[in-house]
Design a protein around this nucleic acid. Structure first.
Lengths: 339, 339
DNA sequence: ATGAAAGCGCTAACAA
DNA sequence: TTGTTAGCGCTTTCAT
């Protein structure tokens, strides 16, 4: 809509050829331009309010300087920090992130993926990986540069940036055992998600090591409702019900809290709850949630770094970068039977 | 990275001219192509895995089919729903949203704005408007199509989509008065934000109408810390301290809650609190927050609709669309002096 | 209904 | 150091 000033206009005003303008206005080539000419071009550009056209440049260089970021749902509070981390790393390098939500649906993810391909993104960051994900397999077959974040795929050789889930769960179990808990319940994420499996395995292992009883229930989805529903399988009145819950994520933990309330039970007096992620405002929940903090900002930044590295190298090692997590103890955990 | 199939390859395989392929593959022109040819082209495209190059198309049509969305900070939980609303409206129409965070800094916003201009976005949605915003004035001078969302500018004629703030605040005050409160405090947003002023004015008006005492404190920023800090101006021990707080948004309300806790006071027994926005998980706070629900998803969708409408029309009426809000009563409000 | 030709704005060889 | 030339992949007159 703004009147379009092109490189030709700048060239005319500066009295040089288009190519010289191009050279002058691009950092990597500006040094091969006479200092005076450079100044003249820059002034002409400023005077005309010249704004380079990234589409034209991209067409010529076959580089869009954009990265496609595919997430299940941006309203899940863990993803904004990941995205911010990605952008923090990309922006200074001239890259822009193109966001796509899938709502957890394969057909939507396909559409998003295609749309991003049409925009010729230079690489992808997937937060939607799962076991044997067809889309990731296709991406690999197309020889696309990509990185997975948070969750991984079981059989696709893209780099993965994740939190140290096993340590996190182990720390949570240890914390509960130290408080005196002996019957734990794990609200496990769906087993087709690597986070679901890894954390469940770690839970079982940690319980075994501590010599206590650890039950696992697999939820149907990673949201508050699913957490509530999963809790309905425990008998609220039984004497041998679990005294503490380790949830696959904070949303499930929230669901468990709501279930307690709905059944006239109190957290942590009647049951302790530990979440995972330390999502924003977890400390403001009722009660403040004990949870495992995952460094999502760093996670995003590291994913972006790794992707760019792979793009530059022209090839990618399928390494897994595991970021340290930490247990944040708040008010949702206490010794069993005590407020 | 994927091997690049162009329209020429498709043309060759289908045995037609490039132009025919272009016509066949674009919905608005496909009808001017012979049915048989059309089929042949589509098959060739599919067989080769042809993916149109949006950059090339954009260069030719000078349409990028992208919309720039500028928000202060995506990790503020009210913005993801707005963005989702925008995308929900844009995607089916072939548009993509390009997101930019400003962190509330003018220089960052400038950079984001410029970067979006370089990408030749077809229009803007600003969630960063404020009184006399220089950037918006510049946007208007450049004859750019834009819409403001949530907050407005005082002197720029772009359409604005907002919640019905005045009604929301009035409902909150009425609710508190009905509970028996007579001394209210308003944590007002910065006065350079239209939301800050509009809500503060509505608060004063509502208190006047009810014939009660309404004090206003202007906070320095719209976050939890600022809410906490602002509350430190009230004397926790005084008998005539306010019995209820109406906060400009949920984050400030949260800050007020933390201040109560820090001062050994209880909400709602010692002080009732009403937020604004009904951000995600407001119902899980401690206590569950009474607040004014704003339809952010609709807000985003309406902003996108309005923008596209203005783009098509070639001109924009500076109308204000005010979306209805509703008071959601939870546990943070009660009669004064009672639990 | 289809083809021919031009050109969107830019960069990258190659010359000079 | 600067200019010349060509072309990235697509759409769009204008012919046919």
């Amino acid at each position: 809509m703004p009147k379009r000033v092109t490189i030709a206009d700048v060239a005319a005003l500066a009295g040089v050829h288009k190519a010289t303008v191009s050279r002058a206005l691009n950092v990597p080539t500006e040094h091969q331009v006479n200092a005076e000419t450079l100044k003249r071009v820059q002034e002409a550009a400023r005077e005309l309010g010249y704004i380079p056209n990234v589409m034209a440049r991209g067409l010529r260089t076959s580089l869009s300087m954009t990265i496609g970021v595919i997430v299940p749902d941006l309203t899940n509070p863990i993803f904004p920090p990941v995205l911010r981390g990605i952008e923090n790393h990309l922006s200074p390098l001239g890259y822009t992130a193109l966001l796509g939500n899938t709502d957890g649906r394969d057909d939507v993810e396909r559409a998003v993926f295609d749309s991003l391909l049409e925009r010729r993104v230079d690489g992808f960051i997937f937060a939607t990986a799962r076991a044997h994900h067809p889309l990731l397999i296709e991406a690999r077959d197309r020889d696309i540069r990509a990185v997975m974040v948070n969750r991984g795929d079981t059989d696709v050789p893209f780099p993965l940036v994740t939190g140290d889930d096993a340590s996190g769960v182990a720390a949570a179990v240890r914390h509960l055992v130290e408080l005196g808990h002996r019957r734990l319940l794990h609200l496990a994420g769906p087993s087709y998600l690597t986070t679901g499996r890894v954390r469940a395995d770690a839970f079982v292992a940690a319980c075994a090591e501590a010599g206590i009883i650890g039950t696992v229930i697999e939820v149907s989805a990673l949201n508050v409702e699913a957490g509530f529903v999963a809790m309905e399988t425990v008998n609220a009145d039984a004497d041998d019900r679990p005294t503490a819950v380790v949830a696959n994520n904070d949303l499930l933990a929230l669901g468990a809290m709501r279930w307690l309330r709905a059944n006239g039970l109190s957290c942590p007096r009647d049951m302790s709850i530990v979440g995972f992620n330390d999502m924003p405002f977890a400390e403001d929940f009722s009660p403040a949630l004990t949870t495992v903090r995952v460094p999502f900002l760093d996670m995003g930044a590291e994913a972006a770094r790794l992707l760019l590295e792979g793009m530059k190298a022209g090839s990618q090692e399928p390494i897994t970068v595991s970021l340290p997590v930490s247990l944040v103890i708040r008010d949702s955990t206490a010794a069993p039977g005590r407020p």
